[in-house]
């Protein structure tokens, strides 16, 4: 009697385990299949392609080992593109962060009318890249744009901004930073709001003024978030594409031919897909390095909480 009861429960347990396993597979497999086909496979293929080269007529790829990579490192154009991407990101990140941090500091704590200002500061998240690019190209129009009008009011010479090879890339960087202010200020506002209000209260009781509170509470507690968001913005700006495609197409005179844009050019206009794949792999490795850094920082932050 007792024995049959036990076998009955183990049977039921076995059944449950089997059912659990079946359900798990049903829930997991569609997602895993899609991830394999559309993320894992292309990543592997990017590496595989990068060691090959197109034969005549762009057909019959042959294995060439590291030849693509060697060519990239020897090519002046590629090194210039890598530098332009870095230069671009080095302008975008601090500019975007300063603007967004100022905005976040102003709107993190409630005051009458804060909702309006939050909407205005976050607004650029709702502006698609293409629209941002169009708005700015008009704003910067050399003949009638308001940017030059403002410069002239201050007695400064008008500029041709996007049509000049010395200003095109920094101008694109400013546009990109502007377009990202909404995104970065959302993250920084969320970070500021996580700082407990009682810390400020305690400081006020101790007689600390606003500046002292900012230096000894806000800055130390927000700096991990600040660093993380800076890194995120840096990463995003390294793959900025839409605004460049819309406004300068890499020009004038290749002055805004950033890394990702050169990949696009080589793959779709110069018909050198394998060479472009090798550039993609290098970009990937570089981004991976930065992302791993970000990951470690996130891990540490979670640990502290």
């Amino acid at each position: 009697m007792e024995r049959s009861l036990r076998t009955n429960t183990t049977n039921r347990q076995n059944l449950r385990i089997r059912k659990d396993w079946l359900e798990m597979m049903v829930l997991l497999s569609p997602g895993l299949l899609l991830l394999f086909v559309f993320v894992v496979l292309p990543t592997v293929e990017a590496f595989a392609l990068s060691f090959q080269r197109e034969g005549l007529l762009g057909r019959n790829r042959v294995f060439v080992g590291l030849e693509n990579y060697i060519e990239i490192f020897k090519s002046k154009e590629n090194l210039q593109s890598a530098w332009q991407s870095l230069y671009f990101a080095i302008i975008v990140a601090p500019l975007e962060i300063v603007l967004a941090f100022a905005a976040a500091l102003l709107i993190a704590r409630p005051f009458p009318g804060v909702a309006v200002y939050r909407t205005l500061f976050f607004l650029t998240t709702a502006v698609p890249t293409g629209v941002a690019a169009i708005a700015w190209s008009w704003f910067l129009n050399p003949q009638t744009g308001w940017a030059n009008w403002l410069l002239e009011r201050f007695g400064l010479p008008a500029k041709t901004w996007l049509q000049d090879s010395s200003t095109a890339l920094p101008t694109l960087a400013v546009i990109t930073a502007w377009a990202g202010v909404g995104f970065a200020s959302i993250l920084l506002t969320a970070g500021l709001q996580q700082i407990p209000e009682d810390l400020y209260e305690a400081a006020r009781i101790d007689g600390a003024n606003g500046w002292q509170q900012f230096c000894s509470i806000t800055i130390p507690l927000i700096s991990p978030t600040l660093f993380l968001v800076t890194l995120l913005v840096f990463l995003r700006s390294l793959t900025a594409f839409g605004q460049i495609h819309l406004l300068t197409q890499g020009g004038p005179a290749d002055s805004s031919m950033v890394w990702i844009y050169r990949i696009y050019q080589d793959a779709f206009f110069n018909f050198r897909q394998t060479y472009a794949a090798a550039q993609s792999v290098l970009l990937f490795l570089f981004l991976l390095l930065l992302a791993l850094l970000q990951f470690r920082l996130v891990g540490r932050k979670v640990h502290y909480e």
């Binding site: 496979l41 990543t43 293929e45 990017a46």
Partner: peptide
């Protein structure tokens, strides 16, 4: 594995994905 895939940016896979 999925945590690992978080690190793969779409801008890098677009070319082989396009070929596929």
């Amino acid at each position: 594995l999925i945590v690992g895939l978080l690190l793969v940016p779409g801008e890098v896979t677009f070319l082989p994905l396009y070929i596929m």
